[in-house]
Design a protein around this nucleic acid. Structure first.
Lengths: 149, 149
DNA sequence: TTATTTTAAATGCATTTGCATGTATATGGA
DNA sequence: TCCATATACATGCAAATGCATTTAAAATAA
């Protein structure tokens, strides 16, 4: 085990951190509210449906979703349970791994994702697109991407 | 009632949005984990203790915290309940408003906030400070601030 | 003044989350 | 081969959250 040397953050660092929290809370609340108002499922269902849609017939494993969406294992497990109950995905047998399952979007899942986008897309435009110019959006995405490294 | 015209977001807008979600989830998890590992209270307690500390003896009203921290009313109410039980704040009578209360940090609250900072500060440095230069942090803070307007 | 509406805060109940653990299969040695 | 360990996923239970509503005290209107 090694001891990492962690120093105090500078004021710019702290400001960036605080703005990350505030901007996220503000924007997320706004977008989630738009979905609720439209009686649509929560945001995370969209992300999952999109991932499944992209992976096509071969499906996706829960642990892959977990890594892609950065959610805890039990969180994914519970969400999938609800989504299956809602009829938006099916769990297929996994040939080369008896522990696992292949998640595939159903027809209803494809439809619901598309429907969600008609609200979600404009909500993103409303909360981000009208606040940042294209250049600013690009710069923001690039800067935030550095935080993932 | 008016109908707002909401168009589809551009790809840069969507990327900025997605990175906001990912960067936030990654950074927050990292910081919250640091606090948990140190057996310290959750982040939001820090924010509240800091606000109370800044407001001094005259205290702060719950609804002020609500606005400042962008949390729902019942969320604040429940958190305050736990923090009072933990001995970190006291509720004082509010002279000119019988419905309200003035929240004041206790000695234990002041101490705990300081203790949390010894973990929280370095965690911010670790998750943000080592990833962004001062200029980049400044730019990030300014861009994210635009999302609050 | 009294009645009405708005604001501050709490709370009952259902849903969701977090944590720890359980179950089952797979993998990598001895 | 057999055993130990690691990985994939589920789940029981406690805690936290979301939603709707309630209570009480302003503020405003009549």
């Amino acid at each position: 085990m090694y001891i990492s040397i962690m120093t105090k953050p500078t004021s710019h660092t702290v400001k960036a951190w605080i703005m990350l929290l505030k901007a996220h809370r503000t924007a997320l609340t706004s977008v989630e509210n738009a979905l609720k108002k439209a009686k649509l499922p929560p945001l995370i269902w969209y992300d999952i449906l999109l991932e499944l849609e992209r992976s096509g017939d071969k499906g996706l494993r829960p642990f892959q979703l977990e890594k892609e969406l950065l959610l805890p294992q039990y969180g994914i497990s519970r969400i999938l349970e609800r989504m299956e109950k809602a009829g938006y995905l099916s769990r297929e047998m996994c040939e080369n791994d008896g522990r696992g399952q292949r998640l595939v979007s159903t027809e209803a899942g494809l439809k619901k994702r598309a429907e969600m986008w008609t609200v979600y897309g404009p909500a993103i435009e409303e909360t981000v697109g009208t606040k940042l110019s294209p250049d600013q959006s690009k710069a923001t995405a690039e800067l935030l991407n550095l935080l993932l490294k």
